[in-house]
Amino acid sequence: MAQLNHTIVASPDRWAGARFLTEVLGLPEPVAYGPFAVVTLANGVSLDFMQSAEVVPQHYAFLVGDDEFGAVLQRLRERGLPTWADPWHGQEGENRNDGGRGLYFDSPEGHNLEIITRPYGSGS
């Protein structure tokens, strides 16, 4: 059975990008592995931040618990970062898709990040 093990995240400053994610999501500090600043998620998947002058924005979604959602939202507010209910950034705030909570925000590199408390298709 195939499982996602890691993916590479382009960033003009790999350490700044990795630290932003760990700080906002409340994850352990990134670690060095070769040319990467590695952020490991609770399910063992890693995001390997790689230094790159050219960044094509990607979308990364993170499943979090209800308590974690509130903590992430608070950290985003403390940083003065806007949040959106939709991936196109047309409606500010958060959504209630699938009976949970969700929101989108931008990383410093311009990646479209999302946190959700329920997987897509799991609720009403």
Rank of each mutant, 00 (worst) to 15 (best):
N5R: 15
N5K: 15
H6M: 06
A10P: 06
S11P: 02
S11Y: 02
P12K: 08
P12Y: 07
D13N: 10
D13G: 04
W15V: 04
W15R: 10
G17T: 01
A18Q: 02
A18K: 01
F20V: 01
F20R: 03
T22M: 08
E23I: 06
E23F: 06
L25T: 01
Y33E: 15
G34Y: 11
P35H: 11
P35V: 10
V39E: 04
A42D: 14
N43C: 14
V45D: 07
S46I: 12
Q51L: 13
Q51V: 09
V55M: 11
V56S: 15
V56E: 14
P57C: 13
P57V: 13
P57L: 15
Y60A: 09
A61H: 03
V64S: 05
V64M: 09
E68D: 15
F69R: 07
V72Q: 05
L73R: 13
R75V: 00
R77E: 06
L81N: 00
L81F: 01
A85H: 02
D86H: 03
G93W: 08
E94W: 10
N95M: 05
R96M: 03
R96W: 02
G100L: 09
R101E: 01
G102N: 07
F105C: 02
E109I: 00
E109W: 09
E109C: 06
E109P: 01
E109G: 05
H111A: 05
H111C: 05
H111Q: 10
I115A: 00
R118A: 02
G123I: 04
